[in-house]
Amino acid sequence: MAMTARQRAQVSLYVQAGIFVVAVAALILATDWKTIGTSVFNFAKIGPMFPDIFVAGLKNTLIYTSLGFIVGLSGGLLLALMKLSSFPLYRWIATGYIEFFRGIPALLVFIAFGYGVPLAFGVQWNVTIVVMISLGMVAAAYIAETLRAGLQAVPKGQLEAARSLGMPQWRAMVSIVIPQAFRIVLPPLTNEVILLTKDSSLIYVLGLTASQYELTKFGRDGISSLGAGLTPLLVAGAFYLVITIPLSLLARKFESRSARTKR
């Protein structure tokens, strides 16, 4: 019997859903739930992680991320303005910086500022400073590109109108252009924070004391101290989602709001 195009599409969707259900069922049946329950995700071992996962892990992840973001945002704004400068030297410095820090693994930056720089200059930095600088400098490179795009998206007439009212260049940027650029880049900027949250885990390469553990290090430490298989790490992973999913929702909200104001 001949089917219409609409019916064929309908059947195709049912088949796809069927395949998905069968695959999930097969996975559930094939899984060794007993082993998983004891050595991968053991419910009984979750309890001992509390409340330490809040007072050390989650708290430190939030602190490290915030510090990194503050440095990254200020550095990124400076770099973005340098990149748009009419003075070639500023543009070269900004371009060099951005290409360098976007091009190397963040882990290397942590090692460099955790071990290399203190050794080379004979300074002693505590972990918070190292995280702030490392995370901030990597973030600045990414944020700079985001902000540059945002600044360029503000129509040229805005700057002209501001200058025509007698505002000096810096004042026109601060009061007129930058606020509009931030509005444009809020969604991508929120995504930068999500990336930053996860990158804060890289400080595991530094020697940390228990009170300095952030979520991932806390989870890894739990594996050996609690003997609970991967349970602590999986719980830590869930906590990342507690941070990042609301941020994603926030980004989406910003996106729909800017779509509405833009006619």
Binding site: A161, S164, G166, P168, I176, Q180
Partner: peptide, 19 residues
């Protein structure tokens, strides 16, 4: 900047500050 304070400018595209 001092001179421009005395000169008002009105643009074809208005260029009001949208924020």
């Amino acid at each position: 900047d001092r001179m421009r304070r005395k000169v008002g400018m009105v643009f074809q595209q208005f260029n009001l500050f949208p924020h």
